[in-house]
Amino acid sequence: MLTLKLKTREDRRLRAGHLWVYSNEIDTATTAAKGVAPGTLCKFVDSRDKPLGVGYVNPTALLCGRLLTGKADAVIDADWMLRRLQSALALREKLYPTPYYRLAFGDSDGLPGLVVDRYGDVLVVQLTTAGMENLKAIVIEALQRLLKPRGILLRNDTSARELEGLSLYEEIIGEVPETVDLLESGVPFKAPVRGGQKTGWFYDQHANRDRLAPYVKGARVLDVFSYVGGWAVRAAKFGASEVTCVDSSKLALEVAAENAKLNGIALETRQGDALDVLKTLRGEGRQFDVVVVDPPALIKRKRDTDAGTEHYAALNRQAMHLLAPDGILISCSCSFHMEAAELQRILLRESRTVGRRLQILEQGGQSPDHPVHPAIVETRYLKAFYCRLA
C-alpha cells in the first residue's frame, strides 16, 4: 500500500481526531503522490514515519486525503465496511422506531465521502469522493449484507463529485420506484427519490419539525421552499387551520399535494420564485400566523457570502411582512458558511427594518441521524430559529 508522509507538525489535526489532509501538508520531497490514481488507498505517516492510519488520496484535489481509520494495519474490505455500517445502524435504531433516517453521514460516521438514506427496504446512496467511489463495490456488498434492501439507488449527481474530478451518474441496483414511502414521527409521506432533490427527503429537519406542535394549532401556516410539504403537512397534523406551500418545482408541489391527500388535509400550493411569491402574497393582503423559511444552501462557497447573506435577509424580511401580530417565524439555514450568530443578526436587523419586536424562543440544529463530528466543524451546518414577532 502507498505510504504518504506528512510534513513536520502537519499531523496535529489528525491526532486531534480530524480526518482530512490537504495537499500542502504532504511531504512531496519523500512522497510521490502526484501520479497516483485518484481514490487510491494509502497509509498516512507523520514526519518521523510514525503511523497515523489508513485512508485514501486524491492528488488532483486540494483536500487530497481522508482518513478512514487510525489503525495502521487495517484492511479496508467489505467486512470493515460492514462493521462501520453496523455501528451507524445501531445508533439510528436507538433513535427511531421505524426505518426511515439517514443511515450514514460521511465523516461523522467514520465514512468520509459516503451518505446513505434509508426508506425502509430502499436505500439512496451518494458517493461524493474518488476514494469512496473506488470502494463502491464493498459499500454495496456491506449494505446488502446488513439490510438486504429491495433496491439501492446511487444518486451520484451531486456537485461535490465535480471537485473530485468525478463524473455524475445515477445507477439502480434491484428495484427502486419513482417515489418511496416514509414515516416521520408517525406521519406518512411520499418522497420522489429518483426525480426529487438530493436523496429525495430532508431527514435533517425531522427534530425541528417535531417542535412545531405548540406553535401551529389553529394557525395559518406558510411553508416557503416547501419541497414536498414536510413542514406544511406536519403543521396540519398538529392542528393548523390552513397550510400553504411555496416552491419553484412543479414536481415538488405535486408530491406535496399527494402528501396532503395521504394525510386527509387541504393544502394550497404556489409555484414560483420564493421572493416573488412572498411579494405577491403581501400584495394580496395575506397574513399568516406561522411562516417557515427553509431555503437550500444560499452560500455554497465562501465567496458567495455577501450575495447569500443579502438573499437570507430579503427572504426573512418579506416573511416578516406577512406575519400577523405575535406571529411565529421559523428561519433556517443549511449553509455551513452562515453561522448561527450571523443568522440571528440578520433576523434582528430585519425585524427592526419592518418595525417588529423579535423574540427568539428556540434554536435547533440537525437531527441526531446527522451527528456532528467534534473535530470537523463542517459537519455542524443546520440552523433553525423559532422566533416571535410582536
Rank of each mutant, 00 (worst) to 15 (best):
E178Q: 12
G229T: 11
R194D: 05
A235C: 12
G186M: 11
G200S: 06
T179G: 00
V193E: 04
V180D: 06
R209M: 02
G196D: 04
K237Y: 04
R209T: 05
T179F: 06
I172M: 10
K198N: 10
E171F: 04
P177Q: 13
G239D: 10
F238E: 15
S226M: 09
E164R: 09
P214D: 00
V228H: 14
F202E: 04
A191P: 11
V176K: 11
G230V: 02
F189R: 11
G165F: 13
D181E: 15
L166E: 09
V193S: 08
E164L: 12
A191L: 09
G230C: 13
G229R: 13
R234I: 00
A213I: 01
G230S: 14
A207I: 07
L166S: 08
R209A: 01
I172W: 02
S167V: 13
I173G: 00
A191Y: 08
E170C: 00
G186R: 11
L182E: 08
V221F: 12
G186V: 12
G195P: 07
V224G: 03
G230W: 14
S185V: 01
V233T: 08
L212T: 03
S185C: 09
K237C: 12
L168A: 14
E171T: 11
G200M: 01
E170M: 02
E184P: 10
V216K: 02
L163D: 06
F238H: 15
V176M: 12
D223M: 03
A240T: 11
P214T: 02
V224N: 06
P214Q: 00
A219H: 05
K190S: 09
